[in-house]
Amino acid sequence: MALEGVSLSVSQGAIFGLVGPRGAGKTTLLKILATLVAPSAGDAFVAGRSVVNEPLRVRRQVGYLPSDFGVYPDQTCAEYIAFFAGCYGVPPKERATLAADLLQLVDLYHRKDTPADRLTPAMRQRLGMARVLAHDPRVLLLDEPLASLDPRAQVEARALLKELSSMGKTILLTAPNLAGVQDLCTHAALLQAGRIAQTGPLEDIRAAVPPYRTIAVKFLGDARLAMNLIQAAHGVVDVQPFNQPSASSDAPAGVALLKELRVTFDGTYAAASALLRSLMHSGVQVVSFAED
């Protein structure tokens, strides 16, 4: 996604949110700051260093966590961290201790000898977080760090980010909506189609933008019952069927069809949890319930 006229500054030690829909240019902006994409015009400064003129110096100051990253299947978690520490020039003697410390920080020390590719997505995200800290960067660039986490893991990740912020790290993270950064960021920027639509304190942005979120509910069973339950729930603004299978579907008789509803929602997390509970108690077989 091309960016145009993007200008913003993030103060040291802040947790700053880049919010916008898919394709808004959040990842491109992070990649420019991480020196993985060269800007066609203009410049960006990370910890006082230009990404155009001093990319190697910037890399030493930055820890970048992509939204979707892989691990080496032949490495354990400790080896994975030690390897990246080595890539950043940490002396060999210090790597094992550093890896142990970082795995403890992200609560993965008990998995230090587990092959990295056998971790759950939530654990892998924490391992990625430990990896970005391997060279003690001043700035963390995190692309949708909470996206693949279950609610409990999200709570833990938020606590970790706040702890890192209290350690003086400047954190720039992306999220698809304001709900993803609330209770975490003090400031945010709203990106739309490659431009910054609004930037400032989170409260100001929240006041200017309807805090609607979309929840995708996939389920088996009675669609009408599910729709009635959702419409009656607290915080629901609208419900629409999505990719509803037609009556002339080719599915063999007796095979249940997966249905999906898109819920526009402006309630709290507790309200969303209550909605999920009511669906499950009423016999709707919920297959997935996630913010889109």
Binding site: T35, L36, L56, R59, F69, V71, Y72, C87, Y88
Partner: peptide, 13 residues
């Protein structure tokens, strides 16, 4: 394929 190249390229190597 393993999605490790981006992270590797991000290092000062």
């Amino acid at each position: 394929e393993n999605k490790t190249l981006e992270v590797l390229c991000m290092t000062p190597l």
